[in-house]
Each structure stands twice: as C-alpha cells, then as structure tokens.
C-alpha cells in the first residue's frame, strides 16, 4: 500500500476523486454518471495535448512547446475548411490536420536547431506565424464538421465517450513508448543529461525532432477533434490549452525539469482539471471567483507536488 502511495501519479487521481466527491456532495449524488461522462470527454482533449507536452518537457529544462494552442487552431481551421461539411472527405480532412501538425512540428524544430534558440522562444515565435495563418484562413467563418464526424466526436459507448477512447489509446501507446521502448529510454536519457546521452550514442537531434513533431501532431489531432466536437473551429479554441498542457504534466507528477515523466498522471491531472471547474460551477460561484479559485488550487497542487519530489 505504501508503495502504491509513492507513485508520483496517485495524487492527481486522489485530487480528481476529491473534486468529484465534493461536486456530488452539492448535488446530493444526482448526475454522477453524466458528470463522469463529461469529465472523460473534456479530459480527453487535455490528455492528448498533455502527452505531447510531457514528451517535450521530459527533454529537460527550457523545453516547453508554447505553440500548442496555435497548432490546434490552425489544424482545426484548415481541416474543417477543407472538408466543407462533406462526409466523404473526413479521412483526407484528418490527413490535412495531421499534416498541419507535421509541418508545425518541423517548423518548430527547424527554428530550434537552425537558430540555436531556446525551444520556448522558438515555439513562441512559430506560434505567432501559425496563429496568423489561422486568422487569415478562418475569416470569421464557422464551418460545421461533417455530420458523421460530429456524431463520432460527441458520441460513444455507454459510459465511455469515443474521444476518451482515442485519448486512452494514445496514452497507452505513449506509456509503452516511454516505459518499454528504446525511444523512451533515449528521451529520458536526454532529459537527465543531454551531454552524457550524446556521448553514449543517443541520436539526440533525431530524438528531439521526433518529440517536437510528435507534440505538434498530437496538438493538431486535438484541434481536429475539438473543432468537430464543438461544431466548428474558432480562433480562440486553443487558448486554454497552453496552461492546460503544462499543468497536467506537472500536476500528473512529471518533473518540470525533465528526465522523469509518467503517463498515468496525465489522465489523472486532466480529470482533475475538468472536475475542479465543474465543482466550482456546482457551488454557483461567479466567473471571477471561479477563476481565482482555479488559479489558487493549481498553485497549491503544484507546490504540494514539488515538495514531494524534493523529499524523494
């Protein structure tokens, strides 16, 4: 039992469960099923971008992908525009979204490699470009997703939304990659000591390239799904995922300094981030108080999570 409690990701799930119970306490136990269903749906978006951001952060200090919101917006916008509500174009549309992610990732890494600037500023500068292209192509139009795609993204099995299924599969793949795959070992090795990793023959730049492209592709996929889920792309759709993607990594028990990461925590933290907002909603608080409490809770949880990593 003590071994179980020492898992870095257990706290995220405990916090999520506490938020769930606190919400249920207000409603008197009403709607537990629908709350869980909604939590799984919305946590799926945070979990997919979180997995991408986690791999980036694992690479070590200074590695953060700030272009996730812009990549999401651009991929969602271009894919929905291309499909133009035509059901037969769904697969090519998904291809367009993933292609956008691929290009964004390549641009990000090209800036990091060629300009030798910290990734945080490279992804920031690139995100300005991505956002601009999105604004230009969007033109304030809101194009609906094709009906089957909208049905898929809002539907699901009883108790398990399709989106959550997709996100869980991605998380499992990421877990296998990180814990069992050679690439995962390489990523962790670079995060712990890039120089040592290079000297021991790890193809550092190839791994970093893969990680940044992977993060952008996952962000693009999230943008595609989010736009389909919410009935169209809009220019602010990615905004909250800047914080979200970083917060779920840290709250999930991964080290912000890199070199130590875990995938299960991403899901726990994603559920927590949604449940905390619905808990505050259920107390009938105004938008202002809700924001303040969300911020305070995030800072407190991060302070708590960091304390554990110090004592460990």
């Amino acid at each position: 039992m003590t071994g179980f409690l020492q898992r870095p990701w257990i706290w995220a799930y405990l916090a999520a469960a506490a938020a769930f119970i606190a919400t249920m306490y207000v409603s008197g136990g009403q709607g537990a099923g629908s709350l869980a269903y909604a939590a799984l749906t919305f946590a799926a978006f945070a979990a997919i971008v979180g997995v991408g951001q986690m791999f980036v952060i694992t690479l070590g200090p200074g590695n953060v992908d700030l272009s996730i919101p812009a990549t999401m917006t651009l991929a969602g916008t271009l894919a929905l525009k291309f499909m133009a509500t035509d059901s037969s174009l769904i697969l090519p549309g998904l291809g367009i979204a993933l292609g956008v992610g691929l290009i964004c990732g390549i641009v990000n890494f090209a800036l990091i490699l060629l300009l030798r600037i910290p990734p945080i500023i490279a992804t920031l500068a690139a995100s300005f470009l991505f956002q601009s292209v999105a604004i230009w192509s969007n033109r304030g139009l809101r194009i609906k997703p094709p009906a089957p795609l909208a049905d898929f993204s809002t539907g699901g099995l009883p108790g398990l939304p399709n989106l959550a299924l997709v996100a869980i599969l991605i998380a499992i793949a990421a877990w296998v990659l990180l814990e069992r795959g050679l690439a995962g070992r390489w990523i962790l090795a670079i995060g712990q000591n890039a120089r040592a990793a290079q000297l021991s023959g790890v193809p550092v730049n190839a791994v970093r390239f893969g990680v940044y492209v992977g993060s952008a592709v996952l962000a693009a996929l999230t943008g595609f799904l989010l736009a389909s889920f919410s009935g169209g792309a809009n220019l602010n759709m990615g905004t909250e995922y800047m914080l979200m993607s970083i917060a779920v990594v840290v709250i999930g028990g991964s080290s912000i300094g890199g070199g130590s990461s875990n995938v299960p925590g991403i899901w726990g933290a994603s559920l927590f981030m949604f449940l905390i907002v619905s808990m505050l909603n259920s107390y009938g608080l105004g938008a202002g108080v809700r924001l303040i409490l969300t911020g305070c809770i995030i800072v407190t949880v991060v302070a708590f999570a960091s304390k554990r990593s110090h004592s460990a």
Binding site: V250, G295, V299, S306
Partner: peptide, 20 residues
C-alpha cells in the same frame, strides 16, 4: 517551484480579480 507553472496559475487569479 517551477515559475512557469506558478505564474500560469497566477494568471487565473489575476484574470479572476479583473473580472470581479
């Protein structure tokens, strides 16, 4: 603490105070 996360969290607090 990681400044990047703490300040991100604080951005919610400032935004909430501003909305209030």
């Amino acid at each position: 603490l990681p400044a990047i996360v703490v300040t991100l969290g604080m951005s919610f607090v400032w935004a909430g105070l501003a909305v209030l």
